[in-house]
Design a protein around this nucleic acid. Structure first.
Length: 474
DNA sequence: CGGCATACG
DNA sequence: CGTA
DNA sequence: GCCG
């Protein structure tokens, strides 16, 4: 039985029922590119959503465009045929039946599909002008009343270009444009004294020098070589059960079947954690791996280029500090299996191809605990928009979804208990788990990405199209 | 009319 | 603040 | 801007 039978699906549920292929059958790639450009202009002009809990600002415009693009990717009908059969008005009405598309977004989608651009937003952004809102007024400022700071919506192309440089955020790009009158990467390169003020150090210098190379798509041959080298290197390390380490592509390499400008690799082991205790304290597999890759000349060292390593020592603490809150919230018994979660060790850096000598961005993620693998895979495969949709769905169910596990939020009125339907498929009695506040869902119920998607669908297979990672290009 | 994903150094 |  |  379908747990959602008889009820209208929410917008998020409708989205998660869809498939998002890299290239759809209805010729929407130009439209998708335009919506992506609009999202980038909004992010570059307003700044991305930021995690400051004091300021709960969301870049709603960027979010709208990201969702609209996902809807277009997931469309199961042809805009072109609909325009022929029903005309503009009929097609707009039909689009408005899709999740997250209201009148504004539906109209914009049709205009972009028919003309290749949108006069009130995209065409203005591309000329460096501020866009118009749905009432025709100029949106001169990002509307963030909490921050008195002025953020003009002009100079979109300059801000997009500058913020595409590794180590230069949207906020830094905004300052460069309006405080230093820098309008391109070329202009920034001519002003070393301004680069120095940005406090990016040698990493920023290096990013600027090799920016074009770092933006190029990684050739398939090099992406394969990166994966193979990482896999063989980790298996040759002097760490416990080294031969059991696996390396697999996540990110675009998994959803599209080819790398973009970076290569994302997830490392995992069936039995071992990402680190182990020695007499000197915790030893991180990632650190040893990076040591070898740097020595071999494949990964550029810390002192030379962008190099960001994030490992956590608390994995081996007893009791683990990140569990204290859960212990305090719920003193009662928990199984061993749900006592283990912290963050995955990560590396964001630069790879040098042995074949061409060219530089490429590489991300390595080491799954911290074996049982967290499906969560790490799901989160690091993405896309960003799909992660946000899945996490919104988790919120609807009273859960947190991160890269490690499900945790009951326990913030609903009336009760701190959260009921999770882990299985409600035909021919079986429904299986419901009750969790206390901040209690993780035991890993035995979520041993694969498919299991996670099933929990999100209240025990049904309603979201099963997303099990195939090539359908996750939302 | 509040909320918009989540996480780390 | 910058990154995923 | 769209949703619940």
């Amino acid at each position: 039985m379908d747990a959602t039978a008889g009820k209208e699906l929410t917008a998020v549920e409708q989205m998660l029922c869809k498939a998002f292929p890299d290239v759809g059958p209805f010729g929407t790639s130009a439209l998708e590119k335009a919506l992506r450009k609009l999202e980038k202009f909004e992010l570059a002009c307003q700044g991305d959503d930021w995690a400051d809990p004091e300021c709960k600002a969301t870049n709603t415009e960027a979010l709208q465009y990201a969702r609209a693009r996902a809807v277009v990717k997931g469309l199961s009908w042809s805009l072109r045929e609909s325009l022929q059969a029903r005309g503009r008005t009929g097609t707009i009405e039909r689009l408005m039946e899709e999740p997250f598309l209201g009148k504004s977004n539906a109209t914009k989608i049709v205009e972009i599909f028919q003309t290749g651009t949108c006069q009130r937003t995209l065409a203005r952004f591309e000329r460096g002008e501020a866009p118009l809102d749905s009432e025709g007024n100029v949106r001169m400022w990002a509307h963030r009343h909490e921050h008195k700071a002025t953020r003009p919506m002009t100079d979109g192309p300059a801000k997009v270009e500058l913020s595409s440089v590794l180590c230069i955020s949207a906020m830094t790009a905004i300052k460069l444009v309006h405080e230093r009158n820098i309008r391109s990467i070329a202009q920034l390169r001519d002003r070393p004294e301004i680069v120095r003020e940005l406090h990016g150090g040698h990493r920023l210098d290096h990013s600027l020098r090799f920016h074009e190379q770092l933006q190029e798509p990684v050739p398939a041959e090099d992406a394969c070589e990166m994966l193979k080298t990482v896999r063989e290197t980790v298996r040759a390390l002097r760490v416990p059960r080294a031969a059991g380490w696996h390396a697999e592509l996540v990110g675009g390499g998994r959803t599209r079947g080819r790398a973009g400008h970076d290569v994302d690799i997830l490392l995992w082991h069936k039995e071992e954690m990402a680190s182990f205790l020695s007499s000197q304290g915790p030893v991180f597999v990632l650190d040893i791996l990076l040591g070898v890759l740097v020595e071999q000349g494949r990964v550029l060292p810390k002192g030379e280029a962008y190099f960001s390593r994030k490992c956590v020592a608390s994995r081996h603490d007893d009791p683990r500090p990140y569990l204290r809150q859960i212990h305090m919230a719920q003193e009662s018994s928990k199984g061993f299996e749900n006592l283990q979660y912290d963050h995955h060790d990560k590396f964001f850096g630069i790879w040098r191809s042995a074949r061409t000598g060219k530089l490429h961005r590489i991300d390595l993620v080491v799954c911290s605990h074996p049982e967290e693998l499906p969560f790490a895979r799901l989160a690091w495969t993405g896309t960003r928009t799909l992660n946000r949709l899945m996490r919104l769905r988790a919120i609807d169910l009273g859960l947190y979804l991160g890269a490690h596990c499900f945790v009951a939020r326990g913030d609903r009125e009336g009760t701190t208990e959260t009921k999770v339907v882990v299985d409600a498929q035909a021919g079986r009695p429904p299986e419901v788990i009750t969790l206390g506040k901040l209690e993780p869902l035991p890993f035995k119920y979520v041993q694969s990405e498919e299991d996670i998607l099933r929990v999100l669908a209240c025990g049904t297979n309603a979201f099963a199209k997303l099990v195939d990672p090539t359908n996750r290009n939302a």
